Each structure stands twice: as C-alpha cells, then as structure tokens.
Simulated scan of single mutants.
Amino acid sequence: MIELQEDGEIACPAARVWAVVADYGQDPRWREGVETMAPSPEGIVQVGTTTAEVMRFAGRTYHNGGEVIRVEPGRSFAWRTSSGIDAEGGRLVEPLGENRCRFTFHVRVTPRVTSERLLEPALRWLLRRSIRADVRRLAGLCAS
C-alpha cells in the first residue's frame, strides 16, 4: 500500500482555494497527468458526487471512477474509487489568516497486480513528486 500526505501553504484566502479543489472539473488545471475529469453533478462536491477520470501516470493511462463519501463544506472532503485503481483519499483547506491557508492532499493507493506491487517504492517516489508539484501548481493557479 502507498499512503501519502502532502501539504503546502497557499497565499490566498481559504474560500478561493476551496472553490478550486472542491470542484473536480478544475482538476486538469492543477493535477499533473489528469487528462479529463467529469464530475456528476458538476460544481462543488457533495456527498454522492461521482467522477470519471482519465489519468496518465508512470507511462500508463488509467480510467478511474470515483465517489465523494464525506464533505465538510468549505473545509474538506473524502473520496474513494469505484473502478480502476484501488484508492481513497481526501482534500483539506485550513485558513491561516485572511489571505493564507494550508492545503493538504491525502491519498492511499493499493496496488493490485504483482508488477505494481514490485514497483511500489518507485511508484511511491513518483507519486510523492507528482503530488508536491500539484500543490505548487494549485498555489499558482489560486494566486493568479
């Protein structure tokens, strides 16, 4: 199992960051490798929101279905996959003042096939690097 949590301070109000991270339709703008993300319904997540994601990672294309399972409006939500890779995670936005916040991205991936399990250390490194870059892209997007 690969479990990662990455966070970063963002020089933007928490509400602005929440508006981006809680709208899955925005994911291709800040998450590396996300080619398409189709949430239903569109807009800010709610319990039961489903997603259809096409993502490129480590040279492979993944088609993942997902579902939002918990929401604390304006602050956090949790999700899990319903098809594709076996994963779950969450996003959290914490205000640190009027114009600053901390964003935390948590993910747990369970490799299913032997080849992925054998490559788990390399996949963990690649995923951590990718998520760190995602947090930086998110900060830039929210600041612009």
Rank of each mutant, 00 (worst) to 15 (best):
Y24W: 09
Y24G: 14
G25T: 10
G25D: 14
G25N: 13
G25A: 14
Q26H: 15
Q26L: 09
D27H: 10
D27K: 13
D27G: 15
P28K: 03
P28L: 03
R29L: 11
W30H: 12
W30E: 15
E32G: 14
G33P: 03
M37D: 06
M37Q: 11
P39L: 08
P39Y: 07
P39W: 08
P39Q: 07
P41A: 00
P41V: 00
E42C: 00
I44C: 06
I44M: 07
Q46L: 03
V47W: 00
V47D: 04
G48H: 04
G48C: 03
T49A: 05
T50Y: 04
A52N: 13
E53D: 10
V54P: 08
V54G: 12
V54A: 14
M55C: 15
M55D: 04
M55T: 12
R56S: 11
F57C: 11
A58Q: 09
A58T: 07
A58H: 15
G59I: 10
G59W: 09
R60G: 12
R60H: 07
T61I: 11
T61L: 12
Y62K: 08
H63R: 15
H63L: 14
N64T: 02
N64Q: 02
N64M: 01
G65Y: 08
G65E: 05
G65I: 05
G66F: 05
G66Q: 03
G66W: 07
G66T: 03
E67A: 09
R70P: 10
R70Y: 07
V71W: 00
V71G: 12
E72C: 09
E72D: 11
G74R: 06
G74M: 01
R75H: 05
R75D: 04
S76H: 08
S76V: 08
S76N: 00
S76Y: 12
F77T: 05
F77P: 13
W79E: 00
T81I: 00
T81E: 01
S83D: 04
G84P: 08
I85Y: 08
A87N: 04
A87L: 04
A87F: 00
A87P: 01
E88D: 09
E88W: 15
E88M: 12
